[in-house]
């Protein structure tokens, strides 16, 4: 899922201080699971902002709403009837949700309430780690299910590099060397011969370097 982290409340206060009527818009998907922008976070932020602005003598109308998703037309339509009641929307969705809402409601200023970080897993309560960089051409079948693009600092395709020491990466002694993990897993799977195969040069045109990407599926289009 997409991992996001909360923006500092001071930053949010600065961004919204000039708007009189504000809608705080949460998202029920990834940001709810990573506890950055779900219904609960919307409630807490709304309460904190209301109190702050009352105290400052600058009382605002701050309302709360959480959509199922902000990256889908159908759910974003739910606020069409109320969006004109607000001077701005503070969206706690990931960057995708914020932008999609902004595209849909062109005349309403959109302010992001979270920092979108990466595609990751919920490793343990309160800890999320990166697992995918959405490079667009998955090689996990050849690397024992461990991604050298997202988990190796150098994105080395035929690793490990010389910075791997006792299974850890040179950039951080607590960070596992992705290639050590790959070799260990291939050994456990009895597929160590695969490690000998030199990976071809990766086609990076499917990655972000090739510009903004698009997936078109004519078979599911109506």
């Amino acid at each position: 899922m997409i991992i996001a982290s909360k923006k500092p409340i001071e930053e949010i206060i600065q961004e919204v201080k000039d708007y009189k009527r504000l809608l705080i818009l949460g998202c029920n998907e990834c940001v709810t699971v990573c506890e950055a922008g779900g219904k609960k976070e919307v409630e807490v932020l709304a309460s904190a902002l209301r109190m702050h602005f009352i105290k400052e003598g600058n009382e605002k109308k701050i309302d709360e709403k959480t959509l199922e998703r902000q990256c889908d037309h159908e759910y974003l339509e739910e606020i069409r009837g109320i969006v004109d009641n607000y001077d701005a929307i503070l969206s706690l969705a990931c960057g995708v949700g914020v932008q999609f809402t902004a595209e849909k409601y062109h005349s309403t200023p959109l302010i992001p309430g979270v920092n979108t970080c990466f595609l990751g897993a919920n490793e343990q309560r309160g800890m999320w780690t990166e697992r995918c960089q959405a490079c667009g051409s998955c090689i996990l079948a050849r690397t024992g299910g461990i991604c050298p693009i997202s988990r190796c600092a150098k994105r080395v395709m035929n690793g490990p590099c010389g910075g791997s020491s006792k299974g850890k990466c040179e950039i951080n002694k607590e960070l596992d060397c992705a290639w050590q993990l790959i070799v260990d897993r291939l050994r456990d799977l009895g597929r160590l011969d695969d490690y000998e195969i030199v990976a071809p040069i990766k086609d990076w045109s499917t990655e972000r370097a090739g510009g903004p990407r698009k997936v078109v599926r004519e078979d599911v289009q109506v």
Partner: peptide
């Protein structure tokens, strides 16, 4: 922490 940040 939140109450500190909002000045309460």
């Amino acid at each position: 922490k939140i109450l500190d940040k909002i000045g309460v």
